[in-house]
Design a protein around this nucleic acid. Structure first.
Lengths: 175, 175
DNA sequence: ACACGATAGCTTGACTTCCAACTATTGTGC
DNA sequence: GCACAATAGTTGGAAGTCAAGCTATCGTGT
């Protein structure tokens, strides 16, 4: 963002260097592309969320809560769903609570569990923020629906290999 | 990593929710997939680099320097190549300098410029670290060469749209 | 009934990233 | 030749991520 476009593709350039010395040029290029893509998507979404004083991490938590049946979920369950470390949920909910968008409460039956509950203000903000994010297409407006689905599908084997979830036998693509 | 595989694909599940309310389900799923893919690749590489006391950020700087003609580059130029904020380069080189893998020196002709130069120890470490990273295929061993190249190609339009570089007219894929 | 392991969150600290503001050096224009 | 803008890096602060270690609570087994 802060700089001019380079006159060449820096990833293609780096790959040329790698190809001279090893067989991992393709993997290196793909890994670097993924890293950069994440930066760009995150920057686009964060930019759209800035007027609402939200980051992507906090926004995700709000959306998850607003989609949940009772507007409240245990901390740990949110960490599982969003695939982030439990500590990240703690600090994220800390901030959301400071902003008055979420409230903590102990589960009545199991006092170990902390429930995060979205407040009415939280519902209002997440609604407006979602419109803003949708307007940016998550920074992916260079792609049509088909290309987006292809992208998602092509990254799925990576998530499966990492053990994120157990694919249902029917849809096991390969391997 | 620290948790069991979920019995369902959390991204597919989230997408189902989005599809009920908006047209951005595909974009949301692709964006989330990219985010998660980056986490996984980064974790794999960081894990491979841990024995060398290197993070991916520091490793990238070392590789860039070891590939450069004189083993030394200005701070700003590295930021451009690696597409990170100038301040990130500063803190990364700070740590590499503490580790004795890099040395700072002022450019003789333009005293504003700080050159980071890789030390012999730095060259030794980056060589060993590279072998370790190559052994993990950057966390992408679920893909063959063709799939890796397809992945890189499919993420290219995003980088072009973000203005990372100006594609040469011949290879403009679509758009 | 009580000890002990498992579970759920929190605290602290290290690392990375970005932004805004600052210092030092270079180049330009009257 | 000297004011002034542009350039190169650094500093300090906010936010996010993860890991290790801690406290509180639950459940089970004897």
């Amino acid at each position: 963002m802060p700089q001019q476009p380079l006159p060449f593709d820096p990833i293609a350039e780096a790959r040329r260097q790698w190809d001279l010395r090893s067989l991992r040029g393709p993997a290196m290029a793909a890994a670097t592309s993924i890293m950069r893509a994440q930066q760009l998507v995150l920057a686009a979404v964060d930019h759209a969320l800035a007027p609402f004083e939200l980051s992507f991490a906090r926004y995700e938590v709000l959306v998850l809560l607003s989609f949940s049946r009772h507007g409240a979920l245990p901390m740990g369950k949110m960490g599982d769903r969003l695939m982030v470390h439990p500590t990240s949920i703690t600090s994220t909910v800390d901030r959301l609570e400071e902003q008055g968008l979420v409230q903590r409460a102990r589960h009545p039956d199991d006092r170990r569990i902390v429930l995060a509950e979205i407040t009415p203000e939280g519902r209002r903000v997440v609604g407006a923020a979602t419109s803003a994010v949708e307007d940016t297409s998550f920074g992916l407006d260079a792609y049509d629906t088909e290309a987006l689905d292809a992208l998602t599908a092509s990254l799925r084997p990576l998530r499966v290999a990492a053990g994120d979830f157990t694919p249902t036998p029917a849809e096991t693509t390969a391997d």
